[in-house]
């Protein structure tokens, strides 16, 4: 029972170590930005995994409303929590990256505003879950919010196309080829895989914990 989860944890750890090696040892220094561009290997995988996490919340919430399966509710809860962690990392690293390159820690352009709104909505989701005493009611309300909140995901991603922003358009998730050298793409892919493994590990751990909490505290 515990072994697959532990194996996933080790895979994630190896992935993160490999990610650090490629991010600092193999990927070249970027021509215009210099070494500060290496923040990208944290910043971009963090938001892509957050999209994944909130996508899982959407699917699990829909499944819960349809089938009323307690497992789907636990998956939604765990995935939202981990998604919030990765969104926080994306926002914090973006801010640190923005200061030396753009010249500011923060600005209210459409991308930064929409990602903040996404972060706060999922915080509200977690607060709602903690607030409601009745588990059945909490699951039902959270499922509805988990579906509605997903509307903000495309808003975040396409904000850079729909409005004028300081943030540049996406480099990875975009139509056409990626305007980046192959080594950058490889470094980004390895870090993305590591973050996805870490997401899987955290969610598995959190789901198991929620199940035990519900059994013990029932």
């Amino acid at each position: 029972m515990k072994d697959p989860q532990r194996a996933l944890g080790w895979l994630a750890a190896i992935g993160l170590a490999a990610g650090l090696v490629v991010a600092f040892g193999i990927a070249p220094r970027e021509a215009t930005q210099g070494n500060v561009q290496r923040i990208m290997y944290l910043h971009v995988p963090a938001i892509l995994v957050a999209y994944l996490a909130f996508g899982v919340v959407l699917v699990a919430s829909t499944t819960y409303l349809w089938r009323r399966a307690a497992g789907a509710d636990r998956l939604a809860h765990a995935s939202a929590e981990v998604g919030v962690i990765f969104t926080a990392i994306n926002i914090a690293t973006g801010s640190i990256w923005g200061k030396p390159t753009w010249g500011t820690w923060w600005t209210w352009d459409a991308r930064l505003t929409s990602v903040s709104i996404m972060f706060v909505i999922y915080l509200a989701y977690l607060l709602l879950r903690a607030m409601l005493e009745d588990r059945e009611q909490a699951a039902r309300f959270a499922a509805v919010l988990g579906i509605v909140a997903a509307l903000d995901i495309p808003l975040v991603h396409f904000s850079v196309y729909w409005w004028r922003t300081l943030h540049q358009p996406p480099t990875v998730l975009r139509p056409g080829s990626i305007p980046m050298d192959a080594t950058f793409v490889a470094a980004l892919t390895i870090n993305l895989a590591a973050f996805a493994l870490l997401y899987g590990y955290f969610v598995a751990k959190r789901v198991r914990l929620l199940k035990r909490e519900q059994e013990v505290l029932a």
């Binding site: 650090l20 220094r29 215009t32 930005q33 210099g34 070494n35 500060v36 290496r38 923040i39 944290l42 910043h43 963090a46 981990v82 962690i85 926080a88 990392i89 914090a92 690293t93 640190i96 990256w97 200061k99 030396p100 870490l198 955290f202």
Partner: peptide
Amino acid sequence: MRDNWSFVFAAYGLAALVLGGY
């Protein structure tokens, strides 16, 4: 072009702190 290594380490350190803390 300056490298701004301090910003790189701050970003990676903060991420490690958040993930490790969780």
